[in-house]
Amino acid sequence: MRIAVLSGKGGTGKTLVTVNLAAVSQESVYMDCDVEEPNGHLFFKPEGVLVEEVSVKVPEVKDELCNGCRKCVDFCNFNALAYVQNKLIVFDEVCHSCGGCILVCPEKALTEKERAIGQIQKGVSDQVSIYTGILNTGEASGVPIVKRLLAEESPEITKPIFIDCPPGSACITMESIKDADYCILVAEPTLFGVHNLNMVYELVRLLDRPFGVVLNKCLDGENPAEKFCLEKNIKILGRIPFENELGILNSDAEIVANKNSRYREMFDSLLSTVIKEVSYAATPDS
């Protein structure tokens, strides 16, 4: 069971929800796909961390074979190649690793070499396996790291996998939710929050993923995100109050469900609601 947690922008509470759901599950996997700023490990403080490098393939030119036809330069949609003074230059960081230049080279002057773009860290915290994806600063795309993270566990695994997605609705988020059995959208109670909620709402509909919303930072009074859900007939999975105590625990990198029984009940109840929703989603025509 793969549960992805996403939101249209950072700071809405993806990590709060993902970390606490993973913590209240008996045995689970927490995957941090927010590879530009992974922070779930700060809460779990995993032990026995193993590090694996993640690399992508980039072209390498054999100058003596290159005849300067520039087919590769013209082919590259990202302009990662230039031909200057009878020499091909490759801009590794601009390359998206499509391999096209190697295919179009009539002289077979291009081969592939590995280039490290980040790493995966695997550790354990109580009964939770913690997988963290880390993209090196300055890299164009973390998608290869997310792919590697998701491949760490087979889809048939029985314990639940909670996926902490990157903010927004771009390629890397799509990759993170691609095989999710269910998506939890976390929303803030503001007009800006509704705009961001709408971005991920459109995404999960486009990718045809079953989903529901968690309303975070709830205060008394009007909640534009709740209104949005009611108008669109979106399942509201739970509500998290805007509270000092929760904020302080969370900013001290504590797992709130482990520190306060009220918060444990809240996330226990959210988890059982989500599990119920996943089983409905898995049953056709229900």
Partner: peptide, 18 residues
């Protein structure tokens, strides 16, 4: 021709100058 590139506009524009 680089003005509307998806990425690497500077590289392509520099190639034009060269």
């Amino acid at each position: 021709s680089a003005a509307a590139s998806t990425g690497g506009a500077g590289i392509k524009a520099a190639q034009t100058i060269v």
